[in-house]
Nucleic acid binder design. Structure first.
Lengths: 249, 249
DNA sequence: GTGCTACGTTGCGCTGTATGCAACGTTGAT
DNA sequence: ATCAACGTTGCATACAGCGCAACGTAGCAC
């Protein structure tokens, strides 16, 4: 469909067979040398390729970056599953696994609590960015340059009396999450429901998902929910480790 | 430089943050939805992205493929080095490591023999495709669709009385190499010099390089050089294993 | 069922981007 | 000193890529 993009991609595929210079690439792709040069410049700008000191082009670091990220994404759910099941079996609370998809934080797995109370949430549903622990955990890992535009266009509609409704307070909250490494939601998303969430990191070191437990306060007070923090963090660490994350010593 | 390519690459980077649909990508890259659709079509054609059944786009399998190939390339020399040194120390013969770069097979490492005789070769130099063992080993791994055009445009100039000078004979030779898993060069590249070569495979299973020993027949007859085949194959297997290759059981 | 919204998709005409050519610069080999 | 091999640049042209507007369709609310 798109000629220049298609040509650029062919260049990448070609470089998969090994480093090559301008003429070789021009020949093997059947594209004019001038054009190859300009396509490679664009590719190199974005680190998809680079040129060594003898003018040989190679596949660039961005390829590795993307591959690592994609692996993380594909695997989280599968990897997390047994750990979540074990956690859920032991503590019997509603447990969520959420990840960033597009501009949204989406629930990608859910385990029900053992008591009769059910929460309104579903796999595939979007988590409210301003009122859920999982969203806070995931957004807190973004650099400010990515976080700002998201916060600026965020829907701060109030869901309970405790919901954070201003960008300023939200950014303060994110700062707190970054410091302590976990997030809470004290009846901010649903009345009478408290929640805590911890991050899952992948091989790239970045946060790739978040796990949370949600408990109605008729079952446990907020303080008792905090007793779950330690085991929850342990689960998060185990899943992260299985995702290839290596904590800095 | 190149607008559409640049946009396509931004889409890939964006997808590194997680799956996304058309609108989300259009928004985050600031490109019209229609254009995003068309770029993604091109990307998907080449397996750089794919669409799941809920119209979410993901990074595609080609990214993994390229990353694996690039890793192989980057690492062979570093990984091979200690093994080559050990082999060279024990047997004292001229040892070459070669890999495909562009359309050429290039020497990427060389260890001198312990006797006084030196061969004319140098790191960075291109190996003759029609007359060297390393080239035979590397080309033999290519599918016929890639091999044919290379053979068709190959320079079959004769270097010794034994040099293979016709495409037909060369293809027969490649068939032999595929069967036995290693290649020889009986005074085909240089008069009075015999050579045997074995493949190095990477995590992808493909041949990523070749190791060879070259011995002047005043030092060892061709038959005695064949005594080196077993240890050479062992070295090749060790390097392959360190490169992530797992032999099929 | 009906109307609505949210998205993906297509046809079209215009604009600007991508392209090939020809010429120049530089490096390295003979 | 000469030549060849390659990377690089300026330029004019053509056509590829673009945004728009309209259409199709699936899912949801009532």
């Amino acid at each position: 469909m798109s000629q220049s993009v298609s040509r650029a991609l062919h260049l990448l595929v070609q470089l998969g067979n090994g480093p090559a210079n301008l003429d070789q690439l021009a020949e093997s792709t059947g594209v004019h040398k001038t054009t190859v040069l300009r396509l490679l410049r664009t590719l190199s700008d974005e680190r998809f390729t680079f040129r060594d000191n003898s003018n040989q082009y190679h596949l660039g670091s961005r390829i590795f970056e993307l591959a690592a990220q994609a692996t993380d994404q594909r695997e989280v759910r599968r990897i997390a599953s047994p750990h979540l099941v074990a956690f859920n079996r032991e503590y019997g609370r509603t447990t969520h696994l959420a990840a960033m998809e597009g501009g949204d934080v989406v629930y990608i797995d859910k385990l029900e609590s053992h008591d009769q109370i059910r929460m309104y949430s579903r796999i595939g549903l979007r988590a409210n960015l301003n009122s859920t622990a999982v969203a806070k955990v995931i957004l807190a890992d973004l650099p400010d340059s990515e976080l700002r535009p998201i916060v600026d266009s965020m829907d701060f509609s109030s869901r309970t009396a405790n919901t954070i409704t201003t960008p300023e307070r939200y950014l303060d909250e994110i700062r707190l999450v970054r410091e302590q490494g976990w997030a809470h939601d004290q009846e901010e998303n649903e009345p009478s429901v408290n929640c805590i969430g911890v991050p899952i990191r992948g091989a790239s070191g970045r946060v790739v998902a978040a796990v949370s437990v949600s408990v109605p306060d008729v079952v446990l007070s907020y303080e008792r929910v905090l007793d779950l923090l330690e085991p929850l963090q342990a689960v998060g660490a185990r899943i992260s480790r299985d995702c290839g994350y290596r904590a800095q010593p």
